[in-house]
Amino acid sequence: MSILVNSETRVLCQGITGSAGGFHTRGCKEYGTKMVGGVTPGKGGQTAEGLPVFDTVEEAVQETGADATMIFVPPPFAADAILEALDAGIRIIAAITEGVPVLDMVRVYEKVRASDAVLIGPNCPGLITPGECKIGIMPGYIHQPGKVGVMSRSGTLTYEAVWQTSSLKLGQSTCVGLGGDPIVGTNYIDLFKLYENDPQTEAILMIGEIGGSAEEEAAAYVKEHVSKPVAAFIAGRTAPPGKRMGHAGAIISGGKGTATEKVAALEDAGIVVAPTPADMGAAVKEAIDRQG
């Protein structure tokens, strides 16, 4: 078992004829993901990366039976691409695109949440069930099938965590990059629910950062509803207020969203918080050991 995606998942790439879309479609195929086609309006009938290209997602779904998609279309068209995938009945939508206007996401978010589909991102590395299905841009080889569910607002920091859990021979069940934007389709709580019910996942690592209150809300949820060991790390303890730290969502505004507040909320919920990014793997181990 795992969450969201596995070896049966059939994946499309929206924006497959662009350089990033093509490059990462190749990477996912090489990893063993069942890539079944691509979508670029106006380029239907062509092939790209050895896969059929369709004009619309609807056609692509009819022809290939795809149930997941990764989106690489440029920011001005990303919201539309997400809505098209949703309309076509795609179950798992991973929006990799960085730079989507936040008001576009307000519109998309409402529609996604009213449906049964799951949107990961935007501005995220995607998701991966090691050894089975990689949808996105993460380097596949650092992963190892195993027992830790990893979720994060940051890309490379996730790689760091994956690397550490692989080195400790814990491995990962499914890793999900939530995305670094103020509004993303899936939050920690959505995934806590899935990880809690997934037999393969024995421990959960959440990697957060400054800005917003998603970590605090997740901490409150964990306290009440999660029985599995949980570890966490929060990036940005040294970030100054009022400055955007790379991610559109990583900003301390009006004194809110600081790392200190988040760490306190997590610790209060009994979560093991890694003091530095070098200790994320160790924190997971400690969380497991604490539960015996």
Binding site: S152, R153, S154, G155, T156, L157, T158, E160, G180, I207, E209, I210, F233, A235, G236, R237, T238, A239, M245, G246, H247, A250, A259, P275, T276, P277, A278
Partner: peptide
């Protein structure tokens, strides 16, 4: 000098630590 926003923030943090 770091790649990725989260890792860049964490690198600042660990220097300070």
């Amino acid at each position: 000098l770091v790649n990725g926003a989260g890792l860049a923030m964490s690198t600042m943090d660990i220097i300070k630590y």
